[in-house]
Amino acid sequence: MTATTIMPEARTASATLRRNFWRGVWRVMKRKPSRMVGVVIMAGFAFMGIFGPMLYPERLPRDTSALYAAPSWAHPFGTDFEGTDVLALVVTGSRYVLLTGLVTAVITVVLGAGIGLFAGFRRGRWDSVLMRITDMKLTIPGLPLLLVLSTIWKFTSAIEMGLVLGLLGWGGVARAVRAQTLSLRERGFVEAARGLGLSTTHIIGKELLPSMAPYIAMNMLIAVTGAVYAQVGLFFLGVLPFEANNWGVMLNLAVFGGGALTTTAALPYLLAPLLAILLLTLGIVLVVDAMDEIFNPRLREE
């Protein structure tokens, strides 16, 4: 028997494994209806972020005859100070917000988990140096730094925004992942891998990482909400210029321009982005609940 005839067999084995994994994920999701609700909400936001802006023209139409219009069939959340549909604003603004959240989450997790794993696995000098850097980073207050940065940087693109937020946010994850790595590396299976002469890449990537997957996935999802709050907060405070269409900008204009806190006219304008943020958070929280079961084969299979 030659290698070529067996190769597909090996590939089928890993394909089966992958198929079983997704089947397990489906099983876990079905266990609680709340999880399915979470998935639907998150899928909805993803759809909104990707395709939503395509449904509207580049410049949203204004209806100058209906400023701060009350909710109606034409304008489910009313209109803003220029007579633009609020729903359209929420949808078109979602791309920036969600993309920022995604970029932040990826950077937080990749940097945090990478540094944490490396420091924890290598220990010794690497550990000391990396953890000192982490500590220093953790002591930098985020908001003042952002205020300073915003004076020289406009954050017109979501990726820039996400990059900055991500670079500010990985410290906590790094510390926690390092602590977990330290305890995991004493476990029998990691020692066995070392004894068998398996490479460090294998040990970190195939032995340690999967054991931390639920934790990392959870952090990633939570980082998304963190990033959404942070940037919406920045725009709301008016720290950043209103170049982009953004939920935070909407909140700012509703409160400071429309006086939403004192009059009812601009209330839908205020509530719509708030509702979006709330829904997004809810979806994420509902899905986070399933992470433990998804990545633990025992809980997944049962």
Partner: peptide, 23 residues
């Protein structure tokens, strides 16, 4: 080395096939 604890000596997240495949 054969460990005392067969419960921690195998990675719970990996199948036996994967455990043997690596070495």
């Amino acid at each position: 080395l054969i460990h005392q604890d067969p419960y921690s000596a195998l990675n719970p997240a990996r199948t036996i096939h994967q455990a043997l495949d690596a070495p």
